[in-house]
Structure formats: structure tokens, C-alpha cells
Design a protein around this nucleic acid. Structure first.
Lengths: 245, 245
DNA sequence: ACAAAAGTGTTCCTCTTACACCCATGA
DNA sequence: TCATGGGTGTAAGAGGAACACTTTTGT
């Protein structure tokens, strides 16, 4: 023992930032930046960063998130670690060496996912950063193993979303039942019976009527609701199902 | 960017190896070994190791598992990463420096859990290694943050065990319905109605009768079953519930 | 004979599912 | 007035929960 031990791993975090536009699940992607503008341009990736000294991984992920979206105190969940010694190939290490100024034979990355409210302010902010919100179904090519990190995050989101009240983090503060239904349909790629969904949803006590209605829609306006955080808190999170679909 | 980046993290894996003795869930613990026998003796920890160059994390975890139990090809699942820069304090780093011969300001560890069949051969093997199987409920003090790693692994096991057929990895090849029930009761700390449990279990088609019976028990001998791997494989794992309790 | 665990059915009730029409609004 | 999505109830079936006695073995 004591031999052969790896001590110069670099550790990074990569964030899968999910948003919901009312119909589709979107993911925030950035283009790889480089010191040499002729080198490796145009390639899409997940926002990420190397961890700093005296920084925990959640802190690093929060830093990435704030850099991409301007938001603090956002829900962030670790998904998995990607540790294949070959996950970053020679040319990638070369890029990392040039861009980050560090030399390492290996980069281990930790995946996180975040859920953000995709309002107009957010879209404007991220556009100014040069980042893009893409439909999750339309993303096919990302650098390195970022597709794996994305797929993994989506799988974890599917597991989580029925068991803790995180769905509401993707919706505006006041939302309609249909928005929530569309969200779950998008996450799982299924259709949900609207009448049965409403029945179970209202029975669960998780929604509070605001008394307000949608405005400027060319159909019967829907009621707006907020989350009843008490209803959720009293049941043990992650043990009791929040939604039944 | 490029500043302040941590490049000399050491990465380790720590394995929570679960076994089941028919009544209780057990975890394999080892004592901290040290170059200086007067220094830091007697302290219990999870089996773990630093990762080596050109080794993935799952490979490192498999190596730890083989070292502790002699087993290869065992189910291993990543739980979480523990990255607090302070998780390993000065005296711990000192010990790591002495024992592993490496110097680092930080050790990030990745938790894994494994499920093994706790037969007499296994107990003998681990005893020869100086390792101990403790009831999970009786474990209160482990070094560093190993209690956190253990708690986390148990939580993940609870989430997994109803949704994929991993429970059978803790049981002998041929087992009784009661053993399976005891296992689930132990994992969740609940009581299960035996008649209802049998009804659902047999309806699921997951068990195959071997035609054999228990022997040398001072009561009506129970039938022995094996797993019907086909019944499981056809449903999507992790999407369909394996057990309902 | 006795102790100890195996094995077995029924009833009640809750939850899930399938399904179709009228309503309120903006254009 | 038309197009669009909002909002509502019922009936049939499946699945979950509660519950007690007989059987088989070793001692």
C-alpha cells in the first residue's frame, strides 16, 4: 500500500440546469471557452468548473450555477461521479491545460442538477452570457462525457420528482394545474388523465388557491395556485409520494 | 479562472458492505491500520482505499471489496461524494501521510455500498482479516465522517431495494419466504403482514419453488425458493416495483 | 405434549382508471 | 361565432389492509 496512489487528480463539477417553459424541459448549455479563439470553438457543454481549495463540491456547484444564471440558493442535487481515467482525452487535457493553466493526467467530475424558474429575466440573463436553453430531447452532442452526465441527471430527476416537492421549483410562484401536469408529462414523456390528476392533486392538499386567475389567454382562464409547504413538510420527504400520476 | 484550482486532492473510496444474518442487517468494519502500532489503534472504520492511477472509482471499490471479503463480481453502487475540505482533520491527514506515504491537503471520498451473502465461509474469511460484522443499529462511532457515509448508504439501500431485485443478493441462493420478509423488515425497521406479503410475492412471479425444504428446524420446515430472474428482467428495472410491502 | 414457525382465505375498503360535456375567454 | 383550453363526476375494477387457525417438525 501507499504505492501507485493518485494524488494529482483534478476534481470538477458539471451542472445540468433544468428549466421548464410550460411545454418542454430545457437544459442550459454553454459553449466551450478557450484562450485560443481558433481552437475548439462552438462546442456545447454543461456549465462546470474545477473545484477550488477550501471549497466543497456543493459550493463549487453553487458557484457555477450563480455564474450561469445569477441565482443563489438554488436547489442543487448531486447525481454521480464520472471517474473514467480516459473520460478526458489527450486533446481535452491539452485544452484544460491551456484554459485553466493546470496540468493533470486526470479529471474526475461530479454531476449536479439544478432546477430553476425559466422566466423572461432568466432567459435574458443567460442569453447575455451566451448560454442557450435547449430542449432536453434535442440535445445529442456535447463534449466529453457530458451526454452521460445529462442522461444521468434526467434519470435522477425522474426518480426524485414524485417523492419530494421539487417540481414546484421549475414552476412560477403562481401556477396552473395544467402547467404542473405538462411538467410531469414532459419529465416522464407520458400522458396524464387531467380529471384523475386534479382529483388526486387536490386530495393531497398540496395546492393553495390564490384566488387569482390567468390573464390574457384566449380561453377560459385557469385558477392560479401556490404550494402548500406545510402539507409537504408534515409527511416525511422522500418517503411519502407527493404525486401519483 | 485558472486560479485557486485544487490539483492535489486525493480521492478515496469507502465501502459499506452489507450482510444479512437472517435477522439483522450487518456492516463489515475494519480497524484502522497504522505504521506505528501505538498510534491510532482500535478505531473502527469502513473498508476503503485511495484510488490508483488508471483505475476508475468502481474498480477501486471492487478492489476494496475483494480485499475485505475475497469476493469478485459483487454488486456495488455509488452513493455520494464527501468533499468537505475539513472532513479529514490535521491528525487524520497526519495518519494518512504516515500510512499511505502521501501528502495532501484534502481527501475527497466516494461512498459505495455492496451486498454480500453472509455465509459461514464469509464470516470465517473476514474474521481472519480482523474485520468485524456489526449490527447496523449498534454502530455509533466510526472515524472521520464514516457514520455519515454509512447512514447515507442505508438510505440509498432503502430506496433501491423495493425497485430492483437486489434483496436476493443478501440472501442465500435458496431461501425461505420468511427470510426475505425478515430482510425487508430489518432494512426498513417495520413489521410486514406475512399473509399479505406472501400473496403479493407469489403473484409477482419472482419466486421459483426448488422443491426442497428447510432441514433440522424444530418447527414445520419452510419451502426453499430461488429468484426468477426472467420475471424481473422483463419489467424495466428501477421503474417497476419489485416488492410491495 | 408442547413449543415454534409455516402456511393458508375472506372481507372490507380505498385508490385507480376510463370516459364526455359544458364553460369562459380572446380573436 | 368560433377556437381553445378549463373545469367537472361516476361507475367498475384492482389492489391493499386487517385478521386466526391448522399443520409440521424437533424436543
Amino acid at each position: 500500500m501507499g504505492d501507485n496512489v493518485q494524488t494529482n487528480s483534478a476534481i470538477s463539477v458539471d451542472c445540468v440546469i433544468f428549466g421548464f417553459d410550460g411545454v418542454n424541459i430545457k437544459v442550459l448549455l454553454v459553449r466551450r471557452r478557450t484562450a485560443d479563439p481558433l481552437y475548439h470553438d462552438r462546442e456545447l457543454k454543461l456549465p462546470g468548473a474545477m473545484i477550488r481549495e477550501n471549497e466543497t463540491l456543493p459550493e463549487a456547484a453553487a458557484r457555477v450555477l450563480e455564474g450561469s444564471t445569477g441565482l443563489k440558493d438554488i436547489y442543487l442535487k448531486q447525481t454521480a461521479i464520472f471517474s473514467d481515467p480516459k473520460r478526458v482525452d489527450e486533446s481535452e487535457l491539452d485544452w484544460i491545460g491551456k484554459y485553466h493553466g493546470i496540468h493533470t493526467v486526470r479529471v474526475v467530475t461530479v454531476g449536479y442538477y439544478a432546477l430553476v424558474k425559466l422566466d423572461q429575466g432568466m432567459i435574458n440573463y443567460t442569453r447575455r452570457q451566451g448560454a442557450v436553453w435547449m430542449n432536453v430531447d434535442d440535445i445529442h452532442n456535447l463534449i466529453m462525457d457530458h451526454m452521460d452526465i445529462l442522461s444521468d441527471a434526467l434519470t435522477v430527476l425522474q426518480k426524485d420528482i414524485l417523492w419530494s416537492p421539487i417540481a414546484f421549483k421549475l414552476l412560477p410562484k403562481k401556477f396552473t394545474v395544467r402547467q404542473l401536469q405538462n411538467l410531469l408529462e414532459a419529465v416522464f414523456g407520458i400522458e396524464i388523465d387531467n380529471r384523475n390528476f386534479r382529483k388526486k392533486l387536490f386530495a393531497s392538499g398540496i395546492l393553495i388557491e390564490t384566488g387569482e386567475m390567468e390573464k390574457n389567454v384566449s380561453h377560459k382562464p385557469a385558477r392560479l395556485y401556490t404550494v402548500n409547504k406545510n402539507a409537504v413538510g408534515k409527511k416525511k420527504p422522500d418517503v411519502v409520494k407527493i404525486f401519483t400520476i
